[in-house]
Design a binder for these strands. Structure first.
Lengths: 140, 140
DNA sequence: AGAAATTTGTCCGTATGTATC
DNA sequence: AGATACATACGGACAAATTTC
């Protein structure tokens, strides 16, 4: 069978259907979406097309996908940073890498990382805490 | 032949090679990148893999692709980072507040926070991991 | 602890549609 | 109209992370 895509391509229609389910609450925040193979069965599309649709959702910040686990509906569709009346406090310190960070940086657990921490406050209290980890100088 | 991808996957290596060419000026701003079929020949990779690499460049704002025309190198937009051949991955999840975070936010230990995590990669590996914590919607 | 099943990630090849030159 | 170039879609195979038994 040919593969025409008049107007809207298939993957986008699927992405739209899925995003409607998320925003309507059919798929609640934090919940797993159906697996890719389940979606291929439901939409009668190839896995590649399904993955293209899921990729679109991810780029729009609606979902998060984890290898071997699945795709989750995000608790928060977005988060524009309010840039008014904010106070930022920045400090710097050294920390030891836990398993998660060590894996990301491909270093050993217990290695030192440099941490820049930024605390953003508004009148109502702490708005956000941002932490950036980097390898210590000379370790790279 | 099988498809092993030890360490870094093929498409990412290609993406970094191309971003270096853009960064170094081998491919000047505004210029067209080689066509997908040309890249297929050069890197001895399938077109799908090439498109995956180009997609990564696009997502990182390095290039712009136009249907039927080609892929252009973007003129340096607004970049906070000095080195531009970087690839960022973003994901979002919920975490439980430890004592430190709970104190900062003035919430109870165990409360859920929304975490946006951004991993910045260069060819040498992970450059930085940035984590931003915020209160869940409705808790503020 | 270890093996199997599940699920997402990567890669290939092919075919056809659509936009541009 | 023809050639070129990117877009969409299918199918198959194997790799890697996670979960389950």
């Amino acid at each position: 069978m040919p593969t025409p895509h008049y107007g809207q391509p298939r993957y986008r229609a699927i992405a739209q259907e899925l995003s409607e389910r998320i925003e309507s609450g059919v798929i609640p925040p934090g919940a797993l979406l159906p697996t890719e193979s389940a979606l291929t069965a439901e939409f009668q599309a190839s896995r590649g097309t399904i993955r293209q649709a899921l990729s679109a959702l991810r780029e729009n910040g609606l979902t998060t996908t984890e290898h071997g686990r699945g795709t989750y509906a995000n608790p928060h569709p977005y988060e524009p940073a309010p840039t008014e009346n904010l106070i930022r406090e920045v400090r710097q310190r050294e920390v030891v890498a836990d398993i998660e960070l060590a894996t990301l940086f491909s270093i050993e657990v217990g290695s030192t990382l440099v941490l820049h921490e930024s605390v953003t406050r508004s009148q109502s209290g702490v708005e956000a805490v941002s932490r950036t980890y980097r390898l210590a100088e000379g370790d790279q």
